[in-house]
Computed example of a mutant assay.
Amino acid sequence: MSAELSGSTALVTGGTSGIGRATAVTLAGLGAHVVLSGRDAGRGEQVVETIRAAGGKADFVAADLTDAASARALADRARELGGQVDVLVNNAGIFPTGPTADTAEADFDRVYATNVKAPYFLVAALAPDMAARGRGAIVNVSTMVATRGMAGMALYGSSKAAIELMTKAWAAEFGPSGVRVNAISPGPTRTEGTAAFGDGLDELASAGPAGRVAAPAEMAAAIAFLVTEASSFVQGAVLPVDGGRLAV
């Protein structure tokens, strides 16, 4: 186990599956005490057991991040478990697709509550403390459709476009105090959540130079880069991890 993040605490939202799970395992492998959140306690405890079995340190906090109160409660609980939060990975998100005309207002509100409001107030709760200590790292998980117009993706894509702008604004706000804020923009990735897309995921991936779907661990590796000193001069960046889709 690497000790690169030894002595630090990392909060990973949506850490019970997919990219979040892979990120929790990766950061724990670098020595961080990982606090992972999610809605499924059973899956969350499985991730914790996996990390602990490998010699790492992890705790699970059940959280349904939909408003400022739930974000603040999670931040408080993470501090109770880890003493302080040095790394925040805003990964939790929902990604419904479909025609604009068929979108119910309740669905619109839930997407923005989960994908925009919760990360906003988690940063509001945690970044000032990082700034006061003079160090910290925040990574937001976006998507390639935040900048690429695709039919049926207006709701999800626009919520992640907001995340990308907030990434840059937070870098400007907190960067001078030593807090680095960046994002990754994943391409097609095979997770429990994207299984519903079936062959469509492979078709989307085939259009990129890599010609394949990514594994969650490949996204986790990019996140690990952005929270460690290897990226010490990277701030306000949105890193495409999309198999080259940005190029075509």
Rank of each mutant, 00 (worst) to 15 (best):
F197K: 06
G7K: 14
T191D: 01
F174M: 03
A125E: 03
M219V: 02
D102Y: 05
D199I: 00
T191C: 01
A210W: 11
K160A: 06
G243Q: 08
S2P: 13
T103S: 11
R72E: 14
L5A: 10
F225N: 07
A78G: 10
R79V: 12
T13S: 15
G38K: 01
M1K: 12
L126R: 07
T50W: 00
D199Q: 09
P99C: 01
I184H: 07
S17D: 14
G15C: 13
V89P: 03
G93M: 08
L155D: 06
T50N: 03
D199C: 00
E229I: 02
I163F: 10
R43W: 00
A106I: 13
M150W: 10
Y156M: 02
A104V: 06
S142P: 00
E49V: 01
A118F: 09
A101F: 11
V234A: 15
V227L: 10
A237F: 03
G211V: 01
V116W: 11
T26M: 13
S37R: 00
G98C: 07
A146Y: 11
I163V: 15
K160N: 05
A118Q: 09
G136T: 10
T194H: 06
V47L: 00
V213L: 08
Q84H: 15
G82C: 09
T9W: 03
G136D: 11
G38Y: 00
A63T: 05
T228M: 04
A10L: 14
T26H: 09
A162M: 12
M166H: 07
V61M: 08
A214D: 05
P186W: 01
T194R: 06
A222L: 02
A124W: 02
M219E: 14
G178H: 11
E203V: 08
A125F: 05
G200Q: 07
I223V: 15
L36N: 00
A151F: 12
F174E: 01
A222Q: 02
T97P: 11
E105C: 08
T114Y: 12
P209W: 07
R110I: 04
M1P: 15
E173F: 09
A92Q: 12
A54E: 13
A137E: 05
S185N: 06
T143W: 12
E45M: 06
T191L: 01
A215L: 12
R245S: 03
Y156L: 02
T9G: 09
G56D: 01
G15I: 05
V25T: 08
A127C: 07
P186Y: 05
F174V: 03
A104G: 15
A161L: 03
P188K: 09
L204W: 15
L239P: 00
E229A: 13
P209G: 07
G244I: 02
S159F: 08
S177G: 00
A124F: 01
L239G: 01
P216H: 15
S177L: 06
R133P: 05
A69K: 14
S70T: 15
G244L: 00
V141F: 12
D76R: 14
